[in-house]
Design a protein around this nucleic acid. Sequence first.
DNA 1: CGTTTGACTACGC
DNA 2: CGCGTAGCCAAAC
Length: 145
Amino acid sequence: MYHPPEPLNFNKLVWKIVQQIPEGRVSSYGQIASMIPPPEGVAADQYKRLGARWVGSAMQVAPSGQGIPWQRVINSQGKISLPKGSAGADEQRAILEIEGIDFDAEGRVNFEQVGWEGPSAEWLCEQRLLPPASLKKHTSQLTLF
DNA sequence: CGTTTGACTACGC
DNA sequence: CGCGTAGCCAAAC
């Protein structure tokens, strides 16, 4: 029941959250950042913009072969953030299309259609990102931090 | 070790 | 709709 006080740095938490994104759905850097408490000393309004960049850094160094669906994280504009024309960008789009994600003529996805709603309250509670009491109030569509 | 850079984003023009 | 800017974590120099 009690998790060891394992040092949970920003990157590891990002990877854990990304692992929760189901196939056929995508999330954005900023959205993922909003699921993580701002580091102490970082103002909330600043974190909203800074966090997204940190999530991007986390994805860049994400370990491969551990089931982290890195391809399901795109930017807030609904577009792939890897350099256009790069091998990585082409690969990301190809994988997403195989997973059933559609891109429009401008290379954007429809968040309202394939956007991930976020992790379940139960999962957040297990990760100690949400007090157990919150489970009684909410069942989905949580507003975090 | 300091410095720089970045898979970002909201905001003001 | 496009462009410039600030932000202060992590990794790479």
